[in-house]
């Protein structure tokens, strides 16, 4: 029978123009009004408690500076820098270490993790090494890295790379393990070769877990970064806090800690934003 001979009596669906679009962004992250208010109240109480304690004079201002003092210190650092180095240079030094390390961690851990999940032989090579060093506190081998690579950025970047590699790698292995096998089978039945299955099916299907891994890696690397800067560094936001504590400048310590907290939240928010844009289909698998 002719291929394009059509029957006229088919009922057609309405075209997409009249079709209600669903929101392509995941709605799980949207908070309700009450939840937002609760978060706000929590922070207001924290600040209030802080203010009251300093007003009552339980601790000396050297030990616990009040909000006003911290704010003044922040403005001072913003204007004059710390130790003659502008604030943005300290932050820049920290973030350069963080981003360089995570860039390399992502571009090695994702392919190696996916391959490990895919081929048992690759896993046999890599997995035990990752399992061995993952539970070690990064600072335990940081001293070695400093001895080998010096006190500069290289040792820190390698440290952060190792810290960030493990969570991404593990997330990728588990993503492939959990992969809906029917995705792979249907692709094979549609003519996809191994390579196509890997890049067109396994990789995109694993993206949600990869992103979770990257977010975890950022968290781990960020804490590791600050600690490593406190152990050995001459710049960076972590070093600033350590140096301030040597001179009992507790207002600067507060400024440093608050900046670290806020930048951490901002980075995670940025990653979540990217995640919503790239994996708009999350939750629909």
């Amino acid at each position: 029978m002719a291929l394009n001979k059509k029957k006229n009596n088919k009922q057609k669906e309405k075209p997409a123009a009249n079709h209600p679009k669903v929101n392509r962004e995941s709605e799980k992250n949207k908070k309700t009004k009450t939840e937002k208010a609760l978060t706000f109240i929590t922070w207001a109480s924290i600040f209030l408690t802080w203010y009251i304690i300093t007003k009552l004079g339980i601790f000396t201002p050297t030990l616990l500076p009040g909000p006003a003092r911290v704010w003044m210190a922040f403005l001072r650092i913003l204007e004059n820098g710390y130790n003659g180095v502008p604030l943005w240079l300290h932050l820049g030094a920290s973030f350069k270490r963080l981003f360089v390390a995570l860039f390399f961690a992502i571009f090695t851990a994702v392919p190696l993790g996916l391959l490990s999940g895919y081929f048992d032989k690759v896993e046999a090579v890599i997995d035990s090494v990752v399992e061995f060093y993952r539970p070690l506190p990064p600072l335990a081998y940081y001293t070695l890295l400093v001895l080998w690579f010096g006190i500069d950025d290289t040792s820190k970047q390698i440290l952060l790379f190792l810290a960030g590699f493990a969570p991404i790698y593990i997330a990728c292995v588990s993503a492939v393990r959990k992969l809906n096998q029917d995705f792979v089978l249907s692709a094979r039945s549609l003519g996809a070769a191994q390579k196509d299955v890997f890049f067109k099916i396994v990789l995109p299907a694993s993206l949600p877990e990869i992103f979770t891994g990257i977010r975890t890696a950022f968290g781990v690397a960020y804490t590791t970064l600050v600690s490593s800067e406190m152990v050995a560094a001459t710049s960076g936001i972590g070093w600033m806090v350590l140096d301030a504590s040597n001179f009992l400048k507790s207002d600067v310590i507060f400024v440093g800690i608050i900046i670290m907290g806020i930048t951490g939240v901002i980075i995670d928010a940025g990653l979540r934003f990217l995640e919503r844009k790239i994996i708009f289909w999350k939750g629909h698998v």
Binding site: D182, S186, S189
Partner: peptide, 19 residues
């Protein structure tokens, strides 16, 4: 010997790729 495109498969729950 293994799947190929001459034999198409429709699964009970559609395995469409959401991305």
């Amino acid at each position: 010997d293994g799947p190929d495109w001459h034999r198409g498969v429709v699964f009970q729950s559609p395995t469409l790729y959401p991305w």
